[in-house]
Amino acid sequence: MEKLNEYLSKYKGFVFPTYILLVEHIDSLQNFEIRDSDVFLVTYGRSGTIWTQNIIMSICDSECTDETEFPNNMKKMPWLEYPPGNMDYSTRASPRFFTSHLNTALMPPGLREKKPKIVYVARNPNVSYFHFYRVWTKLETPRSFQEFLQEFIAGDVGGSSWFDHI
């Protein structure tokens, strides 16, 4: 793992926020069992992820829409790369719903071998991401939009290169 700064680290060529990176978990995704009934929402950061999660959960008639068992998006469609607590995804009933900002190289290989549903949202997030960086205390605040844009183009922001991702 290469530390880029106090806030970001690069692992296997992908830039993660240091405060939530669990290397062991990222490595374990290579053995993650995919089910044909799984549903994945894959986006680059600041590309309409939460909005799309809500749409998917509204469309899918699933037990995962039960507000008492799954009170928020993090529980309904947990992040594949950032599991809340010690959640064991294998025990979830089908269909399982997941969200991810990972690029294809870090996703479980079973995505190519099985037939899960994958929703991919592509949007150029550079202005939204700049404002997100300015208010999120766990990321370094850019001095200017021009500085952030250079880092964004170089892929030196959380989520790595938008160009590679899409």
Rank of each mutant, 00 (worst) to 15 (best):
D61S: 10
I20V: 14
D38W: 01
E113R: 13
V23M: 01
N73A: 09
K117M: 09
R35Y: 11
E63K: 09
N86D: 14
Y133G: 03
K115E: 09
E24D: 15
S160G: 03
F97Q: 01
Q53L: 09
S160E: 00
D27M: 07
T43L: 07
G158T: 02
S161G: 10
K76P: 00
G45E: 00
Y89C: 10
L139Q: 02
S37N: 09
F163Y: 14
F40Y: 15
D27Q: 12
P95M: 07
Q30Y: 07
F163C: 10
S144C: 11
N126A: 05
R92E: 10
S62V: 05
D164H: 12
Y19I: 10
S47M: 08
Y129I: 04
L8I: 05
R96I: 01
A105K: 15
T65S: 15
T65W: 05
G110L: 08
F98A: 02
P83K: 09
N73L: 14
N5V: 09
W79N: 03
M87Y: 08
K115A: 06
Y129V: 00
C60I: 00
V42K: 00
Q146I: 03
W162Y: 15
D164Y: 10
E69W: 02
E67S: 15
S161D: 04
F97S: 00
R112W: 13
K75G: 00
N31E: 08
F70I: 03
P78A: 02
K115F: 00
E151M: 05
N124I: 06
S144W: 06
S144F: 04
V127Y: 02
T49I: 11
F132P: 01
P142A: 04
H131Y: 14
L29M: 13
K12T: 03
P109Y: 09
H101E: 00
T43V: 11
T91D: 12
F98M: 11
V119D: 06
S100N: 07
R143C: 13
T137D: 13
K117W: 03
S128F: 03
F97D: 02
T99A: 13
L8E: 03
C64S: 08
G110R: 05
L41Y: 09
A122D: 04
T49N: 14
L4D: 06
P116V: 07
L22W: 09
N103D: 15
N54C: 08
T91R: 13
M1F: 12
D88I: 06
P71Q: 11
L4G: 10
R123M: 06
M77P: 02
P109V: 06
P116S: 11
I56S: 00
I50R: 15
V127Q: 13
Y82I: 10
N72K: 03
A154S: 14
